[in-house]
């Protein structure tokens, strides 16, 4: 029962976090040095007082700040996000998000999966064979891989894939499933068909590898030290003395415990993924929510920036809650220590 209480407590604690994050966003945008209304207007219209006033009224900026704050928070809470001003002018923000978000989630899903499926086993492998040549190669690889900037890695990967015929002897673009172009958004409308699924996957694969690169390096490193540490625990020796076979020792006693420190790493990478999505989506021209955010910011659609930030905050807090749930599943000590 106390596990449920623990989770309930985490949920309760995340409410002020969302509130604080959103409030800060509001303050930056509406109390900051830029008047969001002017930024929405074109060069000519800024001189036109009537147009300016109209924009202010529509943004609710003619109200006292506090009133505006409550209105704004209220509409976010009810997902009454209104319409866009500049980008995709006049379209429904909800619809816009629903259109762009899935592509980012699809990209994020694959990058987490690839990072976990490569990073964790590699780290465990290096940890089990610590101080051998293969350990050094894997560890060095992980460290360097982690230090590479995503945007640069993306560019390099695209260059390599673009001339894959010359380098590897096969053409990536036409391998297995023909792609219309190396970059661009995946087509998510045909996910339910096998071919559509594969095509959409192949399309985001390079981007997902790049986006997951930092996480992969992290997971490898943590996985390695975790295995090393668990391997030297008394309970592993005791299990060995008990006669547990090497296989069971590794899978039941070592890996299970080594997973615990990996949980916060995998989830804290949500930060990296969402932040990195801006750059990766730019490099790979994927029309995701990261790119949308970036365009909104650079083109001055500040109301949209605020709304999107709210969506990101919800995503991050959601992932954190997921981490807590995972924790209670994997580590029996959580929530029982009265923490």
């Amino acid at each position: 029962m106390s596990r449920l209480r623990y989770i309930a407590k985490r949920v309760a604690l995340s409410v002020p976090v969302v509130w604080l994050g959103t409030t800060m966003t509001w303050a930056i945008i509406y109390l900051g040095p830029i008047d969001p209304a002017t930024r929405l207007l074109s060069e000519g219209q800024t001189q036109n007082p009537a147009a300016y006033e109209a924009a202010r009224t529509q943004l609710g900026l003619d109200q006292p700040p506090l009133q505006h704050y409550f209105d704004w928070m209220g509409s976010l809470l009810t997902f009454d996000l209104g319409q866009t001003w500049l980008l995709y002018q006049g379209s429904d923000v909800n619809a816009l998000i629903l259109d762009f978000l899935p592509r980012t989630l699809w990209l994020g899903f694959w990058s987490v999966l690839i990072a976990v499926c490569i990073g964790v086993p590699l780290g465990f492998y290096a940890g089990m064979r610590s101080n051998t040549a293969s350990d050094y190669v894997a560890s060095m690889g992980g460290i360097v891989w982690r230090a590479m900037p995503n945007f640069w890695l993306g560019i390099m990967l695209l260059a390599v894939l673009g001339s894959s015929q010359a380098i590897f002897g096969f053409d990536w673009q036409s391998l297995w499933i023909e792609l219309d172009a190396l970059t661009g958004s995946p087509d998510l409308s045909r996910l339910h068909t096998v071919e559509g699924f594969l095509a959409a996957t192949k399309k985001v694969l390079p981007a997902a590898i790049v986006l997951g690169s930092a996480s992969m390096g992290n997971e490898m490193r943590i996985g390695r030290t975790a295995v090393l540490e668990v391997r030297n625990e008394d309970y592993v020796d005791l299990a060995r003395a008990k006669g547990v076979s090497e296989r069971a020792l590794v899978w039941k006693h070592i890996f299970r415990n080594a997973l615990i420190p990996l949980v916060p790493i995998i989830t804290s990478e949500a930060f990296l993924l969402i932040g990195g999505s801006v750059l990766v989506e730019t490099v790979f021209s994927i029309n995701g929510i990261g790119l949308l955010f970036f365009n909104a910011a650079t083109q001055g659609d500040l109301p949209l920036v605020g709304t999107l930030m709210y969506v990101f905050i919800l995503l991050i807090v959601g992932v954190n809650l997921l981490q807590d749930v995972l924790y209670t599943v994997i580590d029996p000590r959580v929530g029982l220590e009265g923490a």
Binding site: L13, I28, I34, F271, F293, F312
Partner: peptide, 21 residues
């Protein structure tokens, strides 16, 4: 709570937002 609040905004996005503003 405050640090969680700041961290809930992904750092790179916050950077982009602040540099524009």
């Amino acid at each position: 709570l405050v640090s969680d609040g700041v961290m809930a905004m992904p750092q790179l996005l916050l950077l982009i937002m602040l540099t524009t503003v």
